[in-house]
Design a protein around this nucleic acid. Structure first.
Lengths: 204, 204
DNA sequence: TGTACATCAGTGAACGCGCGTTCACTGATGTAC
DNA sequence: TGTACATCAGTGAACGCGCGTTCACTGATGTAC
């Protein structure tokens, strides 16, 4: 109806923000287009003015949510690079266990994305590559580059899995959920330590 | 209608088998009670003669599917214990990437289970404990018991995450999917090797 | 052995509801003359 | 500066459809007498 370009961009942003939150909280299949539009202050028709389909919205919302979390992380760490262990620690923090709607969109939607179109998969793999690259940048410089990439990729998949699995068990067994997160933190730290002392610097 | 106890048990089994397959293939939210009943050769009403709700069916189907895979694994390995690396290798094999309806129910449904009732979470955490125990039994005996449990739990979460994430990226980037599975395999093997040489036996 | 009856797995109609998507229409925006 | 018109974000009714669950009913099973 009556809307200038600036307002339209605001509305698009509100749709993405709301969709990202609701998809994480209830799953992509667990929330309808109409509900997203309503909570963003619009009607369902408006969604189709900005996105071709619900799947296209899901793909865009996944990127949007991940980018938001990345920005937040960069603010959090300031201008110096955090350690690998810090990053893993933040990702697997107990806070992320309960805040379903705020954590990493990959941990919230990995299983669903496997059943969606290539467009959604594309968004997911871009986010995964970014997460792996961030982790890789924090690894000890003494580790050979191919080993670094391998460890970064395994660490990214491991922390996503740990968070998803911990959330899956937490209602029935909260202690197990904490154990999973802690075991992942310590195992990744040990793998990092081993990789950095194995070659390059001689072992102590 | 006309059904003896034996037939009723068969029908219940057919419902669980079908539900387990369809839930893995399309997600719990992605398939309806009527479709499950139909593919099992029954009507939707029959589901409610055996299960209190769709969630109860989901919880039972998760246990059923996991138990089936465990039996299959035990047959596969025969009477001798496989190595830790063998188990991880089978779980992260490329075959599991594409066969969505046959792999581990945990890798297929972890994200969804986080949003379901405690009943479903209970099924999931029992399966997770079994998987972790199986892995733990294959770890080098030189590793102290607490470290063994920690590594087994981290490995279980890591392989579930690796499979789920690999499936999520494979439509857009098949090479990345393979890379994730391989990196996880090698990183877990390295963590196992490190844990077994760190203490107990002296390092070479 | 024969009869009467409680049990209960399974049927299928019905419930209200929300789903994703389409489409004719609205009306302020912003460009062209 | 004033007028005419194309653009397009957003509305809301409508589409057909499938959802999970309930319930009155069926009829073979299997027990009690």
């Amino acid at each position: 109806v009556y809307v200038c370009k600036e307002k339209a961009a605001e509305n698009r942003d509100a749709l993405l923000r709301t969709a990202s939150r609701l998809f994480r909280a209830h799953g992509i299949d667990g929330v309808g287009v109409a509900q997203i539009a309503k909570e963003a202050g619009l009607t369902h028709g408006a969604v189709y003015a900005h996105f071709a389909s619900k799947e296209a919205l899901a793909a865009a919302a996944l990127s949007y949510g991940f980018a938001g979390n990345m920005l937040q992380t960069r603010e959090w760490i300031g201008d110096r690079l955090p350690t690998f262990e810090d990053l893993v620690g933040v990702y697997t923090s107990p806070k992320n266990l309960s805040r379903l709607d705020a954590g990493c969109p990959m941990a919230a939607s990995a299983c669903e994305v496997a059943r969606k179109t290539c467009e959604v998969s594309e968004s997911f793999s871009c986010a995964f590559n970014e997460l792996a690259a961030l982790l890789e940048a924090t690894l000890e410089s003494s580790i050979p580059v191919p080993d670094r990439r391998r460890l970064a990729i395994a660490a990214a998949a491991a922390e996503i899995g740990a968070l998803a699995v911990a959330r899956a068990v937490t209602k029935a067994n909260a202690a197990l959920a904490d154990e999973i997160l802690e075991a992942t933190r310590e195992t990744l730290a040990a793998a990092h330590h081993m990789a950095s002392s194995e070659r390059g610097e001689p072992a102590l």
